[in-house]
Design a protein around this nucleic acid. Structure first.
Length: 265
DNA sequence: AATTCCTCCTGATAGC
DNA sequence: TGCTATCAGGAGGAAT
């Protein structure tokens, strides 16, 4: 479930619940989530340290330890965080657990186990090595940068928006939201976009992220005009009240309003 | 370079 | 009630 705003919420969660606490123990009930490190290496890197600062890039969350290394978290489809007293009954699906000396635990919860947990010495080189795209909320990502990124590309617009090596942080739901607000059909292609349409997409992106964060990613509290509020079940278009349609491409389901999102626009 | 398909894993829901 | 099929806010890798 987590896209950029949801991962940002998890970053804030770490900030408020897990900083400056001595790590007493690291439990790894689901080693398959480990990405590029062994459980032993992870334990040695973290035990006795404290988490000091956080950083988010797209859907990646980094937490710096007092030893200077960074814990790397990716939440996949169903990853989230929890904080509770170590001695309490654990919530379901705890896949990784950091027990602090003060009796609290930070849990990485992930029913489907698509998440990843790793370590890196340097965030910038981690991002460069994997060639992730720019984070749209980072300084420097402005309208001109958005135009620059899409220039010269071709293919399904939605696939490009969701390609983390192009832009880091947009997933299926926010891509649908952008297309809806910009009045573009889910099968729209990048090479057909006019500059004014790219402007609309940029505005839709920044608005959607800002609005979502303003309500702590609780879609129920979003203004009516956002598709995110109406995407479930037999949703209706917030502009005309008509029934939303859906369409699958590359295995992902797009929801859209056939009246406002035409092939040609 | 773009596109499709398959895979990882588990739970919720819909249909019979 | 029980079974089965389908779908889910992600993404890497292979094949075309």
């Amino acid at each position: 479930m987590p896209e950029l705003p949801e991962v940002e919420m998890r970053r804030r969660f770490v900030e408020t619940h897990a900083l400056s606490l001595r790590i007493k123990r690291v439990a790894v009930p689901a080693p398959s989530l480990l990405d590029g490190v062994s459980a032993q290496t992870l334990r040695r890197a973290l035990t006795g340290q404290v988490f000091e600062t956080t950083h988010r890039h797209g859907k990646w969350l980094f937490v710096r330890t007092s030893a200077g290394r960074w814990l790397v978290l990716h939440f996949g489809m169903t990853g989230s965080l929890g904080c509770y007293p170590t001695r309490d009954a654990a919530p379901r699906f705890v896949r990784m657990r950091f027990d602090f000396a003060n009796g609290l635990s930070l849990a990485f919860i992930d029913p489907r186990k698509f998440g990843k947990v790793g370590l890196t010495n340097d965030v910038q080189s981690f991002l460069q090595d994997r060639r992730w795209g720019l984070d749209p909320t980072a300084p420097g990502f402005d309208r001109a940068a958005f135009h620059q990124i899409l220039r010269g590309r071709s293919g399904l617009l939605k696939a490009v928006l969701m390609n983390q090596r192009v832009i880091a942080g947009i997933g299926n739901l926010y891509a649908d939201e952008m297309l809806f607000q910009a009045g573009l059909h889910p099968a729209a292609r990048v090479e057909d976009l006019k500059p004014a349409t790219v402007d609309r997409l940029y505005d839709a992106m920044t608005e959607a992220f800002a609005a979502s964060l303003a309500v702590d990613t609780d879609y129920e509290r979003l203004p009516e005009r956002f598709l995110l509020r109406h995407r479930n079940g037999a949703g209706t278009c917030p502009k005309c009240g008509g029934t939303l349609a859906s369409l699958a491409n590359a295995g992902r389901t797009a929801y859209y309003c056939p009246r406002h999102q035409r092939k040609r626009s």
